[in-house]
């Protein structure tokens, strides 16, 4: 018996989220009195997993796995789970993990709970708390099957250091040919993604037009943040759809979310409420976002944001 965690990598390096799911796996393993095995595919820095409580890393190195295929990857995770006799399999909430988890669930005949935000409150029956109703509520769910899959919500559990020295084992699963082939990937490699970002700077219709996004990008640069936008901004074509956040866009669960010229409609808030700290900058003191925010500035973005950029630059220079 063990807990298996699938630790994702990007261009050969484990993602930050990999250490969060490893931390979560360690908490579950402690509750069950067992150990953590991580599965890493084409990743180099797997020794770092030991810092988060992983006891053993199954490393898979295979060029056939260079581009992601949910079905093929799910099958690799399945083989690892069977080899390790895993009782619980932990995955992240990345787009790829959310893609493969349901396939894995069927092949392992495992119950799957997604968007889980805390360590299990009980292991018999196996009970977890998850986000539901797009962050408007939590659902307590019981998983009834022998094997369980948990999708951990991004940035909900955090990183927990737990020194163990992880042993490494080469793992060579059978790899099938993919029937969904990736033909082209369009991804900015130099920019932090909304899913991985600690800080997200988001602009709304209050910014009046696409030509005014320079200051949003500059603010994001200073903070090492990802940029995002409200739905009408992407519907109007001011910003790409990939930046649309909210109930019908991407979810945001960053440490800091800065909303500029965004009114705070219920559908917008639902998708960004999982962020830990929210700052709003808006000319209208009555904008609903002020009720959901931690900090607010009632003011014109066109004067506040440039000043904030200068002050943050000075602050960063001092640090």
């Amino acid at each position: 018996m063990s807990v298996l965690v699938y630790t994702e990598s990007d261009q050969g390096n484990l993602k930050k989220g990999a250490f969060e799911v490893a931390s979560y796996a360690k908490a579950v393993a402690d509750q069950l009195g067992t150990t953590v095995t991580a599965l890493a595919i084409n990743a180099s820095n797997t020794n770092e997993l030991g810092n988060y409580g992983v006891n053993k890393v199954l490393t898979v190195n295979n060029n056939d796995l260079n581009s992601f295929s949910a079905k093929v990857y799910a099958n690799v995770v399945k083989q690892a789970a069977e080899k390790e006799n895993a009782q619980v399999v932990i995955v992240s909430s990345s787009a790829d993990s959310k893609y493969l988890a349901p396939l894995l669930a069927v092949s392992l005949n495992a119950g799957y709970a997604s968007n889980v935000i805390e360590a299990p409150s009980n292991t018999a029956p196996f009970t977890v708390k998850r986000n539901a109703f797009t962050n408007k509520a939590f659902e307590v769910t019981q998983i009834n099957t022998n094997v369980k899959i948990i999708g951990v919500s991004n940035n909900a559990f955090g990183l927990v250091e737990n020194s163990a020295s992880a042993t490494s084992e080469d793992f060579s699963p059978a790899i099938e040919a993919s029937t969904v082939t990736v033909e082209a990937v369009d991804k900015a490699t130099d920019k932090v993604t909304i899913a991985d970002a600690d800080v997200v700077v988001s602009g709304g219709r209050g910014l009046k037009g696409p030509e005014n996004w320079g200051m949003i990008e500059e603010l994001a640069d200073v903070l090492g943040a990802a940029t995002a936008c409200s739905k009408p901004v992407s519907d109007l074509g001011w910003r790409p759809h990939s930046e649309h956040v909210g109930q019908t866009g991407k979810p945001v669960a960053s440490n800091l979310y800065i909303a500029i010229g965004i009114s705070g409609a219920i559908q917008h808030l639902a998708g960004v409420n999982a962020s830990k700290v929210k700052v709003v900058i808006n000319t209208d003191a009555e904008a609903p976002f002020f009720k959901a925010a931690d900090y607010g500035v009632v003011g014109d973005a066109f004067t506040v944001v440039p000043q904030l950029i200068e002050k943050l630059k000075a602050f960063k220079a001092q640090q």
Binding site: A113, T141, D294, G296
Partner: peptide, 29 residues
Amino acid sequence: DQTTSVSFEKPAPKGAVKLVAEDNLDELI
């Protein structure tokens, strides 16, 4: 059913927003 919904909770009510004057952004930082 592989999973069973046991109960629901609502998020704890939020504290009031802390407002910072627009000419006092050092305070925000």
